[in-house]
Design a protein around this nucleic acid. Structure first.
Lengths: 262, 262
DNA sequence: GAACCATAATGGTCGTACCTTTTTTCAAAA
DNA sequence: TTTTGAAAAAAGGTACGACCATTATGGTTC
């Protein structure tokens, strides 16, 4: 167990938040390393001079945040977890769901992100990485030619391609964001891969993109990427036809004019 | 209070998670509308056939997720909240914080993000929003001319400008990520604002950018934005001079050649 | 009508007892 | 000596009951 001596008694009225903040700060600042565990609930109770319920509530909040993992039994306790991007994704997904964010906006974001990533990947990716990307793209096409098509496997490969590309930027932030968006978006796009046309065109687009990346042609690569997203956008619109019909577009335009006139 | 009759007693062993899941499901499915409140803790205790501590732990987790808000006193209780983007950002920010990233990479990401956001903001922001942006930028310059400069206040205004710009894209995902980045890496910025040159040039860059946005000149706006980030990059490099000296650059280049040769 | 106080509703805290799960220990059996 | 298995210990999970703090409401008094 980690030796701790930097916790101070909590104020009443919001004790559990106080406790949670102190522990969180300790974790963020690295005073407790990932893998180590906090003192037991009963010990923390003593350290914070408070009831055990307060401690438990605080730990629950931290667990929810993904900062700790709680195991029971002897040698159990609260273990500091190396945070995974999945937590952030879950939170994003929840937000997207509750606020009814249309898929089109998610796609828009993905496209913009992808353009930057592609450019950087061309500039910084090693020859080996670029070849690997092309190989994986070809494998995707290969998979699609087979009679038994497993949609889960295909979409997984698509995801991997995106991640690989993001990693080639050499900047982990792109990878994380890509992961977060994919996880958050996954609730939407399962159905997409049911469409055979979408599947095949996605694959060919990937190989074309990978080829241009290998050749070091940013503009051509971006062109294929753009095509891909345009297709994605179109498929989504067809699925829920309520979006962006001609009339809706005109209405939006009128609203804009009104706003501008103010 | 919302009438509920769809909660079933919780299983032991992980009762609080069970409870949290049931309540979360009820909220997501819209069985309880935003603004309404859940039954009181003591009533839920009865509905779920469990102890009050279990209920409280479950509510803590939901509160942490941003799904509910808890008010005390008479007519208090757990109120269903419309989830805000800020909440989702916090989660990503936490992740970014735990994985410390060199400032240069953060800046690179921010710059790429900013370019997209600026382009979209010009296309979609209303006239009023654009004027508001310019006003706020001018206010920032104004603040800097005063003798008593409050760094906290200034960096806060800078943050607001970034958020405002992100909101003008009309796509909440940009706002999500902008907030997350700012929360996650705010620690870097604080020290930057100590440098008077950086402060003033940041402000003038903002007004120039805002002006070009208002005039609808994407390329010119992006130009100022680029300048800003170049300055930022330079300041950071000066602070920790270990980055990108001439020799380091040459070394990197040699490494690249080695890798490519493999 | 305004200020004030009593009351009730509700979340927040504390303490204790007991249950369940997991690890460790240690002694009996093979 | 090794294996096995029961008991003990450590830790989280649950239940209950009491009390505190905060807030809204309604009645009382001036």
């Amino acid at each position: 167990m980690a030796d701790v001596d930097f916790f101070i008694p909590a104020q009443v009225g919001r004790a559990s938040e106080d406790v949670a903040l102190q522990i969180e700060a300790a974790i963020i600042e690295g005073k407790i390393e990932p893998g180590k565990n906090l003192p037991s609930e009963r010990e923390l109770q003593g350290l914070f001079q408070t009831g055990r319920g307060v401690i438990r509530e605080a730990l629950r909040a931290l667990k929810q945040k993904g900062l700790i993992e709680v195991r029971k039994g002897a040698k159990g306790g609260a273990f500091v977890k190396q945070m995974e991007v999945a937590n952030a994704s879950e939170s994003l997904a929840l937000f997207l769901k509750q606020n009814h964010i249309p898929p089109g906006q998610v796609i828009e974001f993905r496209e913009s992100l992808d353009r930057t990533i592609t450019t950087l990947a061309i500039a910084r990716g090693t020859e080996a990485e670029k070849k690997g990307l092309l190989r994986k793209a070809l494998k995707l096409e290969e998979l699609l030619r087979q009679p038994t098509q497993d949609p889960a496997c295909i979409s997984e490969l698509d995801r991997e391609l995106n991640i690989d590309l993001a990693m080639m930027t050499g900047n982990p932030i792109f990878e994380w964001i890509m992961r977060a968006i994919q996880l958050g978006f996954s609730s939407y796009d399962y159905t997409l891969y049911d469409d055979p046309e979408y599947r095949t065109r996605t694959a060919t687009n990937w190989t074309e993109t990978a080829r241009e990346i290998l050749r070091g042609e940013p503009l051509r690569a971006l062109g294929f990427s753009t095509q891909h997203y345009a297709l994605l956008q179109k498929c989504i619109e067809e699925k829920n036809g309520d979006l962006l019909t001609g009339n809706a577009l005109l209405e939006m335009e009128e609203n804009r004019e009104q706003q501008t006139a103010e």
